[in-house]
Amino acid sequence: MLPTLFSFLYQFGDAFAFLVIASMGLAIIFGMMGVINLAHGEFIMCGAYTTVSLAQLGLPLPLAIAGGAVAAGLIGMLIEVTVIRHLYNRPLDSIVATWGLSMIATQGVLIVLGSTMQGVGTPLGSFTVGGFSYSTYRLVLMGIAVLLLAGLYLLFYHTRAGVIARATIQLPRMARAMGVDTGRVYTLTFGLGAALAGLAGGLYAPTMTLVPTMGATFMVESFVTVVIGGGDIFLGAAPAAAILAVIRSGMTAWQGQLFGQIGLLITVIIVIRVLPGGLSGWILGGRK
């Protein structure tokens, strides 16, 4: 009984961690700026490639992962300044533009670095519970997902930078009148979202094969989490990840990974019919 329960909790935690880590960057950029970043997967890819390159140069894995996040963040800020900035009053166009960037990045990496890259093995080994073997690293990832949520909460609700960011999002004109450089806030927010995507890539790099199209494997899950979550990260994306994790781990255990994905998709289609504003819209709407 207990091993079965542990197995289920482990599956759930694994799915939850994946959904949170994969979607956080997308959720921040969408929640704060209303822009769906279709190059999200490519920031993940960038983080993963940087992490693996640094690790192969001999850097310890945690530092390499941080390096991946920083690299993705810097590229994100560069893209914000060159492309996204000019499209703020045209959200649909900014999505299309990020799609163009995603195509350039995927194909560019394929041309420059070839179709696959030597990865690093999953660290930390494994442990057994009731005859089944589990990866310790994935347990660490679950912890990181929770820490990430807590850290972002502290950042946005308990620091001056967070207050300025939220002020800019709610009333950009007022924030500007109060002396906030809103342009810089947008750049930093986009950079933070990209860095979180890079972090996701770095964290999952040891567990998967590195190919230029790897970003696409994160796409559906992170989209679905953000759509069900709605605009707010803490009231939306986090509970959405928890609910979707139940569905995904259940479907995956029953029929395999693809059916986990199909289950998510059907859930999202039904949820948008019932709760168009996503979970956060529903929760916040109830409070109004």
Binding site: F30, I36, L92, M219, F223, V227, L265, V268, I272
Partner: peptide
């Protein structure tokens, strides 16, 4: 509009 794009892409 944004969500329609994402759902159809998914």
């Amino acid at each position: 509009g944004v969500f329609i794009g994402i759902v159809t892409l998914s």
